[in-house]
Amino acid sequence: MKITYDSICNKLGFDPMKDKIKNGNSEDDTKRSRFAVLSLEEHEFLIDYILKHI
């Protein structure tokens, strides 16, 4: 399966470039990151995509 920005958004359940992520005032290490569902290749794709589109 080819990695696309849309496929990543669908897997995450939100658009990381448009939707605000509410974490409160501090980090909570007891909660799993919403990005933990992504593979290494999807993380790399997302980072490249965001850097090219900001």
Rank of each mutant, 00 (worst) to 15 (best):
S26C: 14
D28T: 13
N10F: 14
K31D: 04
K20N: 13
D48P: 04
A36V: 11
I21P: 01
T30P: 03
L51T: 09
I47S: 08
R34N: 06
I21S: 10
D15V: 13
H53K: 12
S26T: 14
N23D: 14
I21M: 08
S39N: 10
K52W: 01
E41V: 00
E44P: 00
E27F: 11
L51D: 14
V37M: 12
V37Q: 10
R34Q: 11
M1Y: 05
E42R: 06
P16C: 15
Y49D: 02
S39D: 12
T30A: 10
L40H: 03
T30W: 09
C9S: 04
R32M: 06
R32D: 03
C9D: 03
K52S: 06
D48V: 07
E41H: 01
P16M: 13
F45H: 07
S33I: 13
I21K: 09
P16N: 15
S39E: 12
N23S: 15
H43K: 14
Y5L: 00
M17I: 09
K22W: 04
K2G: 02
I47Y: 10
R32K: 09
M17P: 00
F45S: 05
N10A: 15
D28G: 10
I54L: 12
K11W: 07
Y49S: 01
N23F: 15
M17F: 03
D19Q: 02
T30G: 13
Y5N: 00
D19Y: 00
F14D: 06
S33L: 13
K2L: 06
K11G: 09
N25M: 07
H43N: 14
F35R: 01
C9E: 06
S39L: 10
I21N: 06
F14H: 11
I54T: 09
L46W: 06
D6G: 03
T30S: 15
L38F: 03
Y49L: 01
S33M: 12
V37Y: 11
Y5A: 00
M17E: 04
K2V: 06
K18C: 11
E44S: 04
A36C: 13
M1L: 11
K11P: 08
D19T: 01
D19E: 04
E42W: 07
S39W: 09
E27A: 12
L12F: 09
D15N: 15
K18M: 13
E27V: 07
D29A: 00
K31N: 08
L12G: 09
D19V: 00
D29I: 01
H53P: 02
K20T: 12
D48M: 13
K20Q: 14
E42K: 05
I8F: 11
Y5C: 00
R34I: 07
L40F: 02
D29E: 01
F45Q: 06
I54N: 11
D15M: 14
T4C: 05
M17A: 05
I54G: 02
Y49N: 01
D29W: 05
K20I: 11
A36M: 09
E27G: 12
I50A: 03
E42D: 09
G13V: 02
K11N: 09
E27S: 12
L40M: 01
I8H: 10
F45L: 08
L12W: 08
E27I: 07
E44K: 08
L46T: 03
M1V: 10
I54P: 00
V37A: 13
C9L: 03
L51Y: 14
I21D: 07
S26N: 14
I47F: 10
K22R: 08
L46Q: 05
